[in-house]
Write a protein that binds this DNA or RNA. Sequence first.
DNA 1: TCACAAAACTAACGATTGTTAGTTAGAATT
DNA 2: AATTCTAACTAACAATCGTTAGTTTTGTGA
Lengths: 188, 188
Amino acid sequence: MGITRKQEIIQIASRLFKERGYSAVSMRDIAQALDIKAASLYNHISGKQEILATLIIEVGEEFTSQMSQVMTASLNPIEKIEKVIEMHIDVTVNFPDNIATLNNDWMHLEGIALNRVVKMREDYEENFRKIIKLGISEGNIKSQHPEVILFSILSTLRTLYLWNEKRGKMDVNVLKKDMVSVLINGII
Amino acid sequence: MGITRKQEIIQIASRLFKERGYSAVSMRDIAQALDIKAASLYNHISGKQEILATLIIEVGEEFTSQMSQVMTASLNPIEKIEKVIEMHIDVTVNFPDNIATLNNDWMHLEGIALNRVVKMREDYEENFRKIIKLGISEGNIKSQHPEVILFSILSTLRTLYLWNEKRGKMDVNVLKKDMVSVLINGII
DNA sequence: TCACAAAACTAACGATTGTTAGTTAGAATT
DNA sequence: AATTCTAACTAACAATCGTTAGTTTTGTGA
């Protein structure tokens, strides 16, 4: 048993959403990419919203689960940040299209799904913030405005997907090592 | 003479584009925000595309012009990177909505405008890359893969607009100082 | 006060949107 | 062999899209 038709639809849709954005992709576009008619999609999914919600929640839960593993690990703050960076690179490699949609189209979610995703993101940021603040109070991290540190690292990690193709033949482990070095030690 | 009606339309549109994206904002939405009918917009602009193109090219030219000033200044590579960071913060403060649209909706440009903007972005990145490579060869910058450095700094700067509201009462000059410190010296 | 230009309006166009209803061909199950 | 299930299809819907044409209102300068 390979992947279901439903998964196939969501996969193709995520690719199109990544390129053009949720609003610019029609159900007919998605159907055409699968070489079927738009109405046939509804044998597998309830609507465009379900595609969006499934896509986003899938990768959102991956981040949540991985972050909670990092939080409970017995590591010092700097080591935890390193883990978060490495984890982010792994998730980006495994879900590049989902991440694009999570970043750019979360606001087109409706109802409970929207609340849920917003809360997931807030919790994620709050966990990251805790690590940074602890690192500062313990003296491992320079005493800088924590929000600046949080934002700098997080925005680099979040937009990794944009750069992942250009990265080309660069090995994932090399990328992790360089990324950790640049984000933690700076460039000089 | 304050701003023209055309500028007013573009301003309102950029705010809506920032929140929902170009494709999810209709001409009727823009008109409603101005308390007029959609057809009335066409007394001032030729169409939705003109709004998008004007918006994006405006801020694109600002970046191009400021970057070329940095390139010709007699500064060492590290000082140039500092200037680029500060410049990016200034442009973000002055054009927060344009930047959101440049980042997220450039692919919806059509015809010459699309080519032009893609070229502007490529040139911008190439200039930044030159600074970094020179810094590495001169020994001012750690010998790391230049693309990792370029990408880390640039993605932080490009998504500053997302964070600019949360920044709240944080003074622009403090932000510049902290940002330069984090991006160049790291967090430890 | 009159003329003119600017900027709004109403009405409508053809195209496209997400979605539903009902049907059909073929495969799997009984 | 008969039945059920799966997954496609055609046709159509109401709503909305960007845009155009033609008309009316509004404000300004002569």
